[in-house]
């Protein structure tokens, strides 16, 4: 059986909110290392990979591999009933028909309990190769969100060029063009404001802004976002969570010119 207790419902609320517009029905794969999710969007352009390590829960118990096939719209409806600060416990039997969610208020004696019917989801599982990326950029997640939103007003796609000069986000549209360039930057007082660029070779790739803006819904999960790029491979956008847990998005580059 599965029993996983989260100190704050907020974490799961934010994760589900960040991915629910990209993917609809997903398997939450539970085993003794934690709860993982991998799903592609309908167009097979982007892939979400979430890992909530067992250390992110206290306690965490999962004796066998259990796949919880959940419709994220249903999960959102139920999670709306949880206060951000509630303690959230997920429970399921070994061959479950439902997943049970319990929300406990730390301040009052209120306990809410919900069951969500599970679905049988036959999901493709893709192997993601370990990649030595040519460029890795860590930057404030709010800054990345702002850049994507600003450039989407002009164009549907953005080129991300990384060189030793810095990283340049550029777009061209019907009304004109725009770009934002960031250089490495260290803020001793506010490390969340740091921009760190780790480059082994220059990279230039073009991506759909619609997807990037969608990924940025995860911004509230982490002050920093990491972008990993290599020529002609998908972009990795990573939001690191506590206890080595993470929410990652992969986006296939645009091809041709």
């Amino acid at each position: 059986m599965l029993e996983a207790r989260l100190e704050q419902a907020n974490l799961l609320k934010k994760v589900v909110d960040a991915i629910k517009d990209l993917v609809q029905d997903c398997n939450f794969d539970c085993n003794d290392s934690g709860i993982a999710l991998q799903a592609m969007d309908n167009s097979h352009v982007a892939l979400v990979s979430m890992m909530l390590k067992s250390e992110s829960f206290s306690p965490f118990r999962c004796d066998r591999n259990i796949a919880l096939g959940i419709n994220l719209t249903s999960l959102t409806k139920v999670l709306r009933a949880a206060q951000n600060e509630d303690i959230l416990t997920l429970k399921a039997e070994d061959a479950p028909d439902v997943v049970n969610l319990v929300f406990e208020s730390a301040e009052s004696d209120r306990i809410s309990e919900y069951d969500i019917k599970l679905m049988d989801i036959d999901q493709e599982h893709l192997g993601i190769p370990e990649t030595e990326y040519a460029a890795t950029i860590s930057m404030p997640s709010a800054e990345f969100q702002r850049i994507c939103r600003d450039l989407m007003a002009l164009s549907e796609s953005v080129s991300i060029e990384c060189s030793k000069e810095g990283v340049k986000f550029a777009c061209q549209g019907d009304i004109g063009s725009g770009s934002v360039t960031l250089r490495s930057h260290t803020n001793v007082d506010k490390p969340e404001m740091n921009v760190e660029i780790d480059l082994t070779e220059p990279v230039s790739l073009t991506f759909s802004l619609k997807y990037l803006v969608g990924f940025c819904k995860a911004s509230s999960l982490s002050g920093q976002v990491k972008l990993c790029l290599s020529n002609e491979v998908p972009l990795l956008v990573e939001y690191a969570l506590a206890n080595n847990s993470y929410l990652r998005f992969y986006l296939a580059p645009k091809i041709g010119d």
């Binding site: 190769p129 580059p253 645009k254 041709g256």
Partner: peptide, 14 residues
């Protein structure tokens, strides 16, 4: 025009 690649062409089935 720029085409959109598929994520499946980059990752293998596991």
């Amino acid at each position: 025009p720029i085409g959109q690649g598929s994520i499946k062409s980059f990752f293998t089935h596991s």
